[in-house]
Design a protein around this nucleic acid. Structure first.
Length: 196
DNA sequence: AAACCCACCAACCGCGATACA
DNA sequence: GTGTATCGCGGTTGGTGGGTT
């Protein structure tokens, strides 16, 4: 038996969220807290599946999200963590207060990948592209001209070098507590956390 | 001014992990 | 111990806006 869909597709909205939907979701979570995503949409009066609500809250509506440009410090930390953890975006996000795994994943794919490629570093292995012997672990790089390499979307897409490897890596057991001691302290003028 | 291209990012999809009956 | 429901993660897609031709 195949996996049942997470929701009744016929009666759920999809695509971009409206302001009204956002407001309903925020109001509901303020009143009842997070959790039980399955039953949340009905209780909150939303025609969305729980999965969609969870994503919207975690990636966009949560009050403690930082948003805005990544700092140079965050860039470096992401690169270091990725060299240690690979595509474990949720673990990486855990070390960057106010950032989500989705945001970091997007940022990696659109900016950092290109930056590393432009520097001649393989973003998958963190090794120089033309010198597989050396390993770069502590990459200390400036915010170089991101367009320098001029890698287009096609190249990005065709660069599925590790697709199958990814699938195999997929669902490794949770990393043991690496205690990497890598994290970013909150920005000097961090926006106050809005209580919900 | 219009058409096209490209980069970005929000949102979706599929699947493994986990919880629970 | 087994089956089912739900959660959470990572990969991928598609809409949109800005830049270029």
């Amino acid at each position: 038996m195949g996996r049942s869909p997470c929701c009744e597709r016929a009666h759920t909205n999809k695509g971009a969220w409206t302001k009204e939907e956002d407001d309903r979701l925020i109001a509901y979570i303020r009143a009842h807290g997070e959790g039980c995503w399955r039953s949340l949409p009905k209780a909150a009066g939303l025609l969305r599946c729980g999965k969609s609500c969870r994503l919207r809250w975690i990636n966009y509506l949560r009050p403690d999200l930082k948003r805005g440009n990544f700092t140079e410090e965050e860039d470096e930390l992401i690169i270091k963590l990725h060299s240690l953890l690979g595509n474990k975006w949720s673990l990486i996000a855990g070390k960057l207060p106010g950032r989500t795994d989705n945001e970091i994943k997007n940022y990696w794919n659109t900016h950092i990948r290109k930056k590393l490629l432009g520097m001649g570093v393989d973003p998958a292995t963190h090794r120089p592209i033309h010198d597989s012997a050396a390993t770069i672990t502590a990459v200390s790089v400036g915010r170089t001209e991101e367009k320098a390499a001029g890698f287009g979307r096609e190249q990005e897409r065709s660069g599925e070098e590790e697709t199958s490897a990814r699938r195999q890596n997929h669902r490794q057991p949770k990393c043991p507590d690496l205690n990497l001691e890598l994290s970013i302290s909150p920005p000097f003028h961090q926006a106050p956390l809005h209580p919900i």
